[in-house]
Design a protein around this nucleic acid. Structure first.
Length: 243
DNA sequence: GCGACAG
DNA sequence: ATCTTGTCGC
């Protein structure tokens, strides 16, 4: 892929928030009418230490949407461009993700992102920001709550409750809390770009294969830690046989 | 002013 | 995110 690398990244937190307020107008909350052919998972890991001395590593893994067979892995590294500031995660993670996407041969129709999408103070979490920059459909798939309140979703896997922002009037449903596995902590799902919450829930559940995290996200995490495409494909064949 | 706070 | 071993429950 060849994403637009022209985007201001060297910003103060105040400037970053202002940019989010501009970009939020571009988010499309309507999903594609047809099912995706290729789904990707992305993940970023950052080495410890002062952020100016840290290195960011990104991994993008592309799968066949139906079979979840892994087809391609792309990784990239760069100096960490931004510290971790709650609400500004995308300025820390999007730059290195763009480097990884630039190496990608396949073009996914859907991207699962580890972080919030619409469920963000300015409605522009990492998943939404990445979707805008790449012009791809994205879903925010976070392991913990950022904003919003909710009831506990019921077992079994597939159950969900609304994630509601009570700080605005009237209050607004900003995403869903989804049980992706029995008796295991739920996931916080929200629309990224070219997406809505119901469709996001369907896609996430489709991609879950017995683990809390959907397969694309799990695998991207492993690849950010060094796992290769060959190893992913061996795993897939092993399990593809058992099922 | 105080508490909360994706990764 | 990262630092880190064993351990409890399905």
């Amino acid at each position: 892929m060849k994403p637009n690398l022209e985007h201001p990244w060297d910003l103060t937190p105040q400037q970053a928030r202002a940019l989010q307020n501009k970009l939020r107008k571009r988010v499309v909350l309507r999903p594609a009418s047809r099912l995706p052919k290729l789904v990707a998972g992305v993940d970023v890991s950052v080495s410890r230490g002062p952020w100016r001395e840290a290195t960011s590593r990104a991994a993008v893994v592309v799968f066949d949407y139906e079979t979840l067979e892994p087809l391609e892995v792309a990784t990239a590294e760069m100096p960490s461009p931004f510290p971790y500031v709650p609400g500004l995660l995308s300025f820390r993670e999007v730059p290195v993700l763009l480097l990884a996407f630039a190496k990608l041969v396949h073009k996914p129709d859907l991207v699962l992102v580890d972080g919030q999408g619409y469920a963000h103070p300015r409605r522009l979490g990492l998943a939404s920001h990445l979707g805008i920059v790449l012009n791809l459909a994205t879903i925010g798939c976070a392991k913990t709550r950022f904003i919003g309140t909710h009831d506990e979703p019921a077992d079994p896997a597939g159950g969900y409750t609304d994630l509601v922002d009570l700080s605005v009037s009237p209050s607004e449903i900003i995403g869903a809390v989804v049980r992706t596995r029995d008796r295991v902590k739920p996931l916080y799902i929200s629309a990224g770009h070219r997406m809505d919450t119901p469709t996001a829930i369907d896609h996430v559940l489709h991609c879950c294969d017995g683990y809390r995290l959907p397969e694309p996200t799990r695998r991207a995490h492993q690849c950010a830690a060094g796992k290769t495409l060959d190893e992913l494909q061996r795993d897939w064949k092993r399990q593809s046989k058992r099922t």
